[in-house]
Design a protein around this nucleic acid. Structure first.
Length: 845
RNA sequence: GCCGGUGUGGCGGAAUUGGCAGACGCGCCAGACUUAAAAUCUGGUGGGGGAAACCUCGUACCGGUUCGAUCCCGGUCACCGGCACCA
């Protein structure tokens, strides 16, 4: 046929045909088994698609395409998570409306995604900034509010001292403003909160039943941070009680002082009794002024003030002990107060040393003069009255029982997880559908008034006083109270960008429903997501948030499953070569640099001096400033989408970070060229070529299994090997039919074109997935390793499954083995079926 | 500090989890085709020794278990990611 592989023409042609034929439409309610494959929808930034996007997208496209070929009704959707700061900042800078910016960016992303040949169902696209979409985001918020899970609380927010603006946590990098580099301090502001902590235990427990990769589960468990201990009340000389949380109630006899956080509310009650109130107030002010950055910087150096005028009483020793305030105790964890046991807690030990406080040993096993002894496994209680002689775990139980009996405390579980700060003082987000009325307080908007649309404003600039730009829209702000009809104001804060992404996968199931966020039928048919792949950076944010929302929706009867995603996997980042690293310079540049610097060592040192430490890393994140960003458009133009898809799956272990290497892309192009040319020379026989039969069956097995295990790189390597075999042995149309179906999920366009050229019927991408015959994957002969004393000496070819005697006969006939055996006898043979024999020799007596 | 991960040729990476280390690809070397180059095709390619058959070393480092260790155990080092005063 002598046709050239014109990837550009072929890719356009098949993208059109697939779309016309509706090959990738998901059908709600179909009799086929369903499969919901999900990728994280992109934020449509002005920069367009990054080469990092195709990695997870191609991976799940391969899975979706394979499932379709396996007879599933597949839902593989895409959408846009379009609210967010970069768009807002771009709109401010270029005086464009964020809606227009978003529209343009989505159009660009859509074009790029289509160019890559993904089998998305384009009829189900969602856009979080579409009022028909965010209507339901607001609806969910109202349900949270009605159940008491959305509430207002005064919270410290990040305040940039230079921009004079509230920053999202994501905008604070290492304690400074991401944009201007000025220090960020905390400022009190009333914020909407979502009570995710009410779901902490369920979010933890239900992880066990999910098919998430282990590192995701571990990170979520650590983030939720459950710990079991006890709450204990310490009576004070002020006549009240100070409650603490501890995970080591067994060490109660060793509590020689107490510490409360500078923000602790009890300080107000004690004001009249404190004789050093000025000193205490100064410390409180200092702590409030400190940024997070300073607080962590100074972490090791403990500070504090001893309260004069109020002391506490240790409930078991009856001793009066001092109370300190110190910022090493956090106001937001436990009760904001601790009993300090310097003998058995590292932080308390440091503090006690600094302030000259007594250190009492109550668990034997270490030397409390040298360091705190914190081991719970081996320690035995001492100096602890009725606990003496008990191991730690037993003592914990005994003391907790005693405290409960005395009414001084009880067992208590605490979580590190905090409630979710849900307000942003920004324009480009979902308006919070709540009205404030002086008479009625916070009143939810009636559901039939949703969506509460964003108004058009003159300026999207954040304001100087930390209010949302919406606050200046008096026409929009002023409204009437839905409850009493009196004057009221809309809430001017908007939702964070995590809101719309917390439930988007549900909307794909039923994207145009205007009666409900998803119909019960669609939810019942498609739930849960069968396979969700996304970045590790979302593990403790988006992934946890959306699990929380889903559980809430389950509780109010909107969705049928208590978990949204059955399986979660994660891909590694695509990195770039560092153009400032010596090894990545061209040979000419290297030589030049070595000449001017004197030696290679000096050249490397020069680069580090010029560019900083970063020049020492050959592989780094892609960044515009380094100029090592790869644009997928360029790759597609030069090599085609199929080559990009194949390369990005071939370049390394899917779960690990991997560097993009331009010249390696050629290898994948060469592979596809070889597949193309093979179609020219293949015979018309519809059967497998006998010489290729076992290789074909093995490849079917390997590619199928590897896709399930996300080992896409070795799946491609197996197909490359098969192509090498087909060249060596000659290929038939039958061989090609299998190869093209295996290749189709990876490189769908070329597979489709060759499928047509070779005269096969229908779409290649809708054929059934090839099946292999286990018996045909077995070769007639195997090459077995022959070892002497465990070291490889030679190999022998024997019929498969040969008995040991047959193999030994062949081995002993080998000249080399005979030489090695001179003057020796076999004392033992180890035989591993079809793999190896190992002879243990000993000199003859 | 705590939790998790990784360490294999010049490079990206394989190795059915205790059984022939380096599949597949890049790069490089040689040859074919070409006036030449590119492209393509064929062969070679971990280090050291040897003309060769072959010998020998080799999966971050040290030690152990085993007939046999990239894989298991003990220790050390380096790098990456997450959390970080969570009582």
């Amino acid at each position: 046929m002598e046709l050239k592989y014109e990837f550009e023409r072929i890719e356009k042609k098949w993208q059109q045909r697939w779309e016309q034929a509706g090959c990738y439409k998901a059908e709600t309610g179909s009799d086929k088994p369903k499969y919901f494959a999900l990728v994280e929808f992109p934020y449509p930034s002005g920069d367009g698609l990054h080469v990092g996007h195709p990695r997870p997208y191609t991976a799940l496209d391969i899975v979706a395409r394979k499932r379709r070929m396996q007879g599933y009704n597949v839902l593989f959707p895409i959408g846009f998570d379009a609210f967010g700061l970069p768009t807002e900042n771009y709109a401010i800078k270029h005086h464009m409306h964020p809606v227009a910016v978003t529209e343009r960016n989505i159009a660009h992303f859509t074009e790029q995604l289509k160019m890559l040949g993904y089998s998305f169902d384009w009829d189900r696209v969602v856009d979080t900034t579409d009022p028909d979409y965010y209507k339901w985001t607001q609806w969910i918020f109202l349900q949270f509010f009605k159940k008491g899970l959305a509430y207002k609380a005064s919270m410290p927010v990040n305040w940039c001292t230079s921009c004079k603006v509230v920053l999202a946590n994501e905008e604070v990098v290492d304690g400074v403003c991401e944009r201007c580099g000025a220090p960020v301090v905390k400022k009190e502001k009333s914020q909407w909160m979502l009570a995710i902590t009410k779901y902490a235990q369920r979010l933890l427990d239900d992880l066990d039943e999910l098919d998430f990769i282990e590192r995701v589960k571990i990170q979520q468990r650590n983030w939720i941070g459950r710990s079991t201990g006890a709450e204990v009340d310490f009576a004070t000389t002020a006549g009240d009680a100070l409650r603490v949380f501890t995970t080591r109630p067994d060490t109660l006899f060793g509590a020689t002082y107490m510490v409360i956080s500078p923000e602790h509310a009890i300080l107000k009650d004690w004001e009249g009794k404190l004789t050093n109130l000025d000193e205490v107030r100064a410390y409180q002010a200092e702590a409030a002024r400190k940024s997070d950055f300073e607080r962590t910087e100074l972490q090791k150096d403990k500070t504090g003030v001893c309260l004069q005028g109020v002391r506490a009483v240790n409930p078991v020793t009856g001793q009066e002990i001092p109370i300190f305030i110190s910022d090493y105790v956090l106001a937001t964890y436990g009760t904001g107060a601790i009993m300090a046991v310097p003998g058995h807690d590292t932080r308390d030990w440091e503090f006690a040393r600094k302030f000259g406080l007594p250190i009492v040993e109550v668990v034997k096993g270490g030397n409390v003069e040298e360091a705190a002894f914190t081991d719970c496994e081996t320690g035995i209680l001492v100096n602890s009255g009725f606990l003496d002689g008990m191991p730690v775990e037993e003592a914990k139980k005994a003391i907790t029982a005693w405290l409960t009996e005395q009414g001084l405390g009880q067992e208590k579980v605490n979580f590190k997880l905090r409630d979710w700060v849900f307000s942003r003082q920004r324009y480009w987000g979902e308006p919070i559908p709540i009205v404030h009325c002086d008479k009625c307080g916070w009143v939810p908007l009636p559901e039939d008034q949703l969506p509460l649309r964003l108004p058009d404003v003159e300026s999207y600039e954040p304001t100087d006083n930390g209010e949302s730009p919406l606050a200046y829209m008096t026409d929009w702000v002023n409204t009437t109270c839905p409850k009493c009809g009196g004057p009221a104001q809309h809430e001017t804060d908007t939702m964070p960008n995590w809101a719309g992404s917390s439930w988007y996968f549900l909307r794909y199931m039923d994207p145009n429903n205007d009666k409900a966020l998803v119909s019960p039928e669609a939810a019942a048919y498609w739930s849960p997501v069968d396979w969700y792949n996304g970045g590790m950076e979302h593990t403790t944010l988006h992934l946890l948030y959306s699990r929380f929302w889903h559980k809430f929706l389950y509780d109010i009867g909107v969705v049928p499953t208590k978990e949204p995603y059955q399986k979660r996997t994660s891909h590694g980042m695509i990195l770039g070569l560092n153009p400032r690293n010596f090894a990545n310079l061209s040979p000419e540049e290297q030589a030049e640099l070595v000449r001017t610097c004197g030696s290679e060592k000096a050249a490397r040192r020069y680069l580090v001096e010029k560019y900083g430490e970063m020049a020492e890393h050959p592989i780094v994140k892609m960044s515009k400033s380094l100029g090592n960003v790869v644009n997928p458009d360029d790759v597609v133009r030069t090599y085609g989408a199929d080559t990009l898809r194949t390369y990005i799956m071939f370049l390394g272990d899917f779960e690990k970070a991997a560097p993009w290497q331009d010249n390696a892309v050629k290898g994948c192009k060469r592979f596809l060229d070889r597949v193309w040319n093979l179609a020219d020379s293949c015979t018309d026989s519809p059967e497998l070529t006998p010489a290729n039969e076992s290789a074909v069956h093995k490849t079917i097995r390997k590619v199928g299994a590897d896709i399930e295990e996300m080992k896409f790189n070795t799946a491609i390597a197996a197909m490359m090997s098969l192509v090498n075999d087909l060249y060596a042995n000659g290929a038939s149309k039958g061989d090609m039919g299998v190869l093209l179906r295996l290749l189709s999920p990876f490189a769908p366009h070329i597979a489709e074109e060759l499928w047509e050229i070779l005269g096969f019927e229908g779409f290649c991408c809708l054929q059934s997935w090839p099946e292999y015959d286990e018996s045909k994957t077995v070769d007639a002969e195997v090459e077995m390793a022959v070892q002497v004393q465990g070291k490889l000496k030679t190999t022998v070819k024997v019929p498969v499954d040969s008995p040991e005697e047959t193999i030994l006969e062949a081995v002993l006939a080998d000249g080399k083995i005979q030489r090695l055996m001179e003057g020796k006898e076999i004392v033992k043979t180890i035989h591993v079926k079809n793999k190896l024999v190992n002879l243990i020799l000993k000199p003859k007596a």
